[in-house]
Structures are given as structure tokens and as C-alpha cells.
Computed example of a mutant assay.
Amino acid sequence: MLEFDSFIVFFSNIQFFSIIEFLGTFAFAISGIRLASAKHFDWFGAFVVGFVTAIGGGTLRDLFIDVVPFWMENPVYLWATFLAFIFVIIFHKQLVRLNNTFFIFDSIGLGLFVVVGVEKTVLLGFDPWVGVIMGVITGAVGGMLRDVLINEIPLIFRKEIYALACVIGGIVFVVLQMLPIPLIANEIITAGVVILIRILAVKFRWHLPIIKGE
């Protein structure tokens, strides 16, 4: 009975992890497609930007930890991007009216992908500090590639609290993992911390010091 219960818990964690990864892909894809539409990209260009935004960080992470990039093993992430594309087309007018649309979906994607990056790396046996770095890469690199493709200065290099939110989220995950709390609770708390930091940083204009030139 105990072994069966352990299996159920493990299966539930795997399922929830997949949901997080799917939702993160969907949210990041929307942020990319939304910005591409603002730059007047055509449908194909907008889809490419959305897909690169969604899979860029996870691809680099998987290459670093020497596993097959996640999206190559399951077409669901391509479908998630397609659904995000359809979502933007259908609700384009509503998304345009909401000035914070990009920020909302970008923050959600960031929080969810930090969880995915740290958890996947740590479960493969890497040290916690490596997991934190992979969490930052998973969360931030897709957005960086998105900004490069649409000819903007990457958000991670601006004064906004962005990568630092990923670092804090990664640390929260590895610390909570040492405590006797369910993995699902850890995932929710970590994602929530990253999203909350992003919201508060923008609301109260928190930022790191800027290096000044001559």
C-alpha cells in the first residue's frame, strides 16, 4: 500500500511538472508573439519569435546538462506555441487594450520556467548551485533571444529586476527541497516568488545600480 501511494505521489509530481512546462511554454510564446505583432511581423515571423521565446532557454539548458532538448521528444510544445498564436489572433484587440499583457505573460512564463530549469537539473543529480544557474538560463534566455529577434535591447540587460528574480527563485527551490514539504508545493511557491518579485520590482521601480560610462 505504501509503495502504491509513493507511486501515486511520484506520478502526480510528473504530471504537474509537465503542466508547468506546458503553461510556461504557452505564456512565453504569447509574450513573444505579442511583441512580434507590435513590430508588425507577418504570421510566420510571429510564430517563429513565439516558438524561440518558448524553447530557447530550455534548449540551452538541456544542451548544458547533456540531454536531448525537451521539445524534440514531444510535439506538445510546438502545439502550445500554435495555441498561443491562435490565442493572440483571436484576442488581439483585447491584448492590445491591455498595456500590461506582455508583462503579465512574460512574468508567468519566467516563474514557471525557473521551476522547470532548477527541478530538472537537480533531479538529474547536479549540485544545487548548478540547478540555480540552469533555472536562470531556462527562464531568461528565451526572452533574450526574443528581444534580439525583434531588435530590442534584451530585457535581462536593462535595469529592471529580471535575472535576479530567477536567481532568488532558484535559491528558494533548492532551500525548500531540503524541507519536508511536497514537491508540488515547492514548485508553486518558487514560481510565485519569481512572479511576485517581478511585479513588485516593476511597481516600485526596483533595479540594480547602473554602470556609468565616462
Rank of each mutant, 00 (worst) to 15 (best):
Q177T: 02
F103W: 05
V88C: 06
Q177L: 10
F7L: 14
K120S: 11
F17D: 13
P69S: 07
R205Q: 11
V202I: 12
G213P: 01
F17Q: 13
I188M: 11
A140Y: 02
F47I: 01
P154D: 04
W79D: 06
F17I: 09
V202W: 13
I153F: 05
N151L: 12
I210L: 14
M1W: 09
T53D: 01
D42Q: 00
A54L: 02
L176N: 08
V172A: 04
F44E: 13
H92C: 01
E214T: 08
I161K: 01
F87K: 01
D66H: 15
V96S: 14
F103Q: 05
F91K: 05
R146Q: 04
R205P: 00
D42C: 00
F87V: 02
I19W: 09
A38M: 15
D62S: 02
E214A: 09
T138Y: 10
V115L: 09
A80Y: 11
V172F: 02
L183Q: 10
T81C: 09
H207D: 12
D147P: 00
L179A: 06
F70Q: 03
T25W: 08
K120I: 03
E119R: 15
V132F: 03
F4K: 15
A29I: 04
I8Q: 10
S6H: 13
A80P: 01
N151E: 13
P75K: 09
K203F: 04
L35W: 09
V194L: 04
L110T: 10
F82V: 13
V118F: 03
V115Y: 04
N186C: 12
T190Q: 06
F82D: 05
F7C: 03
T138W: 10
L164G: 00
L124T: 04
V175L: 14
H40D: 14
D66R: 14
F7E: 13
G143W: 05
P209Q: 04
L60F: 12
Y77P: 00
V76T: 10
L78M: 09
I137G: 04
V122A: 08
V130M: 12
V9D: 08
L179W: 07
V194C: 06
V96P: 14
I210V: 15
M72V: 12
S37K: 14
F70V: 04
S107T: 02
F91Q: 05
L35Q: 08
